[in-house]
Design a protein around this nucleic acid. Structure first.
Lengths: 132, 132
DNA sequence: ACAATATTTTACTATTTTTATAAAATCCTA
DNA sequence: TAGGATTTTATAAAAATAGTAAAATATTGT
């Protein structure tokens, strides 16, 4: 029952950008160095954040990344779901996790409840909350 | 961020015992058949529940397992922790997960909060709640 | 000034390594 | 021999690395 490095690193990257950004772009390798994550692995994580539309990017010299929005506009749950995939604690709660005996499954509503409290919590925090 | 089969199966076993028990003992292979879990794997899971003191066992003919207490005496969180290990969403929140930069880690209190809501939830339910 | 080349940086895809889970098999013991 | 503890094997997922391409800027030689 662990959050993977993708989600953990992604949060740290977003915080790093929130703190170190201003108007200029920040190179991936600088984030990698500060956060002690390998360049190549960080590329993949940033690609996920980028695909989700959370970043502005610029190639070439002086290029890099910066946040597309203000920190308080980012829901932490969204960042985690974009990088981790869904946060469902068991398979049958995921999008394509259909279970034929959902109706008379005694554990289903329990797991659903757990899924709910997890999502409620992560959706109640913004990036700004983490920085303060 | 998934609960493993150990925890999921353990819950189902406990429910199975709660429903099918009375005063008599229930053989492992009957539970295994009903719950569609391999005998050998179920042995390991029941061993964990047994070690935690949740079961009464009887060897030999007519032997098997039954709950040591009434269903409402079992906290679901305890069952999960006994079989899954702790439910902490990240390593640094576990018992031997010391992290030197815990103090000035911006994500720490966020993860701690997540850990708290998870544990609060699973500790608010008893086995009896699941059966009803 | 400008075409050619080099440098810096992101973007994409594939592969390898590592770790965790699930299950089975084996051994031990009262 | 049922129950339990421990090892082994198989599989899948996660973590990390590697290589190539593409875009933007910078430099250089004529």
């Amino acid at each position: 029952m662990k959050i993977s490095t993708k989600g953990r690193y992604a949060l740290r990257v977003m915080i790093d950008l929130a703190i170190n950004s201003s108007d200029k772009f920040i190179a991936l390798k600088d984030i990698a160095k500060r956060q002690n994550i390998s360049n190549k692995y960080l590329e993949q994580i940033i690609a996920l954040l980028n695909k989700a539309g959370y970043l502005e990017t610029a190639r070439g010299n002086m290029g890099g990344y910066k946040l597309a929005k203000a920190p308080k506009e980012y829901i932490v749950g969204d960042i985690l779901r974009a990088t981790e995939g869904d946060l469902a604690p068991i398979f049958c709660l995921t999008e394509d996790g259909e279970c034929e005996r959902k109706k008379d499954c005694m554990t289903y509503s329990f797991w659903k409840g757990l899924d709910d409290v997890i999502n409620e919590y992560v959706d109640s925090k913004t990036l700004e909350d983490l920085i303060k």
